[in-house]
Nucleic acid binder design. Structure first.
Length: 519
RNA sequence: GGUCUCGUGGCCGAGUGGCUAGGCAGCGGUCUGCAAAACCGCGUACAGCGGUUCGACUCCGCUCGAGACCUCCA
């Protein structure tokens, strides 16, 4: 594969050239949602970040198998000491079957991800559907002596593991430090050490979700599903494992330990972690009570929101920051993203119209090219070579976009380059610069590739406008045009104002009048 | 308390040992019956204090500030 894609590997604390195990195949596993609540902005971040990775790897020609799990069992309730299953607790509160809750929230998750134009992964396995694999993995781990059974529960022996392998190498923690400051939590009596983690938990009587196992009726430990399902679908070793930074410790650390022991080898080659969305500088999280759900963003129905924000605005907002940086939420930032996106999409629209008119215009404008070379004003801003070959700027833009993506998926720099492209588009439209048909095609391909294919941005403005409305608007605008030609400003303004009351804004320009919804 | 990350112009957000993204807002202009929209132009900012260097916003140290993880969390 001809590229030099560098990815930031958390394990190495630095960027490395990406080389898959079995080219052209790439295996990627990403930690998905726990489906016991409505998806919020925090869920959108990794989904979009790894969607970008997925799309770009495919663009480079890789055959990617992308696995993202749905966690529907096994996570413990934080404020409970009985080890009650999160899903079960929610089910009790709502008087529903656990699987009903799971079904509801996973449907919601899929729906909102689709609105965000996040591509469906290749496989979306559920923990509850892979109990057998998890039991099998526990058996293997027990066989190596790195786990022990107490009262029907199975725990991973961290201290023993640390004797053979470096526990904490991903998160940069040392066992001694962990020993020095572990908290006393209830329900830990069974463990030899507080930092040991459960592979299997015996169910208490009130637990609704339970499965038989050699050790007890119970449920799998909360780190196991990723190791088991990753192994099942991607093999004992695979290329990329992704997830939020908050999962780094202990979740991913435990995954490393489990897989190492069970399979006798290190499972993951590149660990990628996205950073958090913050709100007033603080992490947005369900447990912090400051999470704004995606539905609330799309409807604007939340005290913190000044308006609704469309799915593409959210997507663009997220892509405008690098995935490893925190991203601070605010109305101001979101509104900026909304306008920026609009400008980008409008530029793309203009580009298409330029292209259709290209062959006729380019011929006639050849002479003007000479003129602009001699224009001293433009010499100030551009190197002479660029003026003689405006198309070379397009090539440079394309190179810059690829360079940005190859530098650990730097979407904000890609976007900056695309805005440079928008400037060129306007200049060509105004007749200040000229491109050959070939160059115009090149620019068009560049936008299609990066905006649509890789960044997954769609034009929302015209998507839901039916042909009938378009026809009506054409009619109304035509009538207003006639009024204006008669200099009947009263009629003209009345039409404009009436439409404005209906939430439709007219935009007059030299080329004619266009319209859009006010929102 | 321990481990780690970060501190960039009004806001969001890239990046780099010298060539100093981008978006939004603001200001100026073009266009226009008016308005809006659109387009063009304009901002030398990198927490503070030291040090290394010919030169640091970028490297090192300290101080201040913010955050993440250590417990379920994307």
């Amino acid at each position: 594969m001809e590229h030099n894609l560098a990815v930031y590997n958390t394990l190495k604390r630095g960027k490395e050239i990406f080389v898959p195990l079995n080219e052209p195949f790439v295996g990627m596993y990403v930690c998905g949602p726990t489906v016991y609540g409505d998806p919020h902005l925090g869920h959108a971040r990794p989904a979009i970040a790894f969607d970008l990775v997925f799309r770009y790897l495919k663009h480079l020609g890789y055959k990617v198998r992308y696995v993202r799990n749905i966690t529907d069992v096994g996570h413990l309730e934080a404020d409970r000491d009985e080890g009650e299953d999160k899903i079960a607790k929610k089910a009790r509160l709502d008087q529903l079957e656990p699987m009903e809750v799971v079904q509801y929230y996973s449907d919601r998750y899929y729906h909102f991800m689709e609105l965000l134009n996040v591509e469906r992964p290749s496989i979306e396995p559920r923990a509850s559907g892979h109990i057998m694999e998890q039991i099998e993995m526990i058996r293997k781990i027990l066989g190596t002596g790195f786990a022990y059974v107490v009262n029907g529960s199975v725990y991973f022996d961290i201290e023993k593991y640390n004797g053979s392998y470096p526990y904490g190498k991903l998160s940069g923690r040392k066992l001694e430090d962990l020993m020095a400051n572990t908290r006393d939590l209830e329900g830990q009596e069974e463990k030899r050490n507080p930092f040991d983690f459960a592979l299997w938990k015996k169910a208490l009587p009130e637990h609704i979700m339970r499965w038989p196992s050699p050790w007890s009726d119970g449920f799998p430990g909360w780190h196991l599903e990723c190791s088991a399902m990753g192994t099942r679908y991607l093999g004992e070793q695979f290329d990329i494992h992704g997830g939020g930074m908050d999962l780094l410790f202990p979740h991913h650390e435990c995954e490393i330990a489990q897989s190492q022991v069970a399979n006798g080898k290190e499972a993951v080659r590149y660990w990628l972690h996205n950073n958090m969305v913050t709100i007033n500088g603080q992490k947005m999280g369900k447990s912090l009570g400051n999470a704004v759900s995606l539905e609330e963003f799309f409807t604007g129905n939340h005290p913190l929101l000044e308006q609704a924000y469309s799915p593409m605005t959210i997507r663009f907002f997220i892509l405008q920051a690098h995935y490893r940086s925190t991203l601070d939420f605010s109305n101001e930032a979101l509104q900026a993203a909304e306008k920026g996106l609009k400008r980008l999409m409008a530029g793309m629209e203009t580009l298409k119209s330029l292209q259709s008119a290209a062959s006729s215009q380019i011929q006639g404008s050849r002479f003007k090219v000479q003129g602009s070379v001699n224009n001293p004003a433009s010499d100030i801003r551009h190197p002479v070579s660029d003026i003689q070959h405006p198309g070379s700027r397009i090539q440079h833009l394309a190179d810059s976009c690829y360079a940005a993506m190859n530098d650990d998926f730097n979407s904000p720099v890609v976007i900056a380059n695309l805005f440079e492209g928008v400037r060129i588009i306007h200049a060509v439209k105004e007749g200040k610069e000229h491109l050959t048909e070939e160059e115009l095609n090149h620019l068009n391909r560049l936008f299609d590739t990066f905006v649509t294919e890789i960044m997954g941005l769609q034009d929302e403005s015209s998507g839901d406008q039916s042909k009938r409305i378009d026809g009506l608007m054409e009619l109304i605008i035509g009538m207003r045009k006639e009024a204006r030609e008669r200099k009947d400003w009263g009629a003209s303004d009345r039409i404009r104002e009436a439409l404005e009351d209906l939430g439709i804004i007219l935009k007059d320009s030299r080329e004619g009048t266009s319209w859009e919804k006010a929102d």
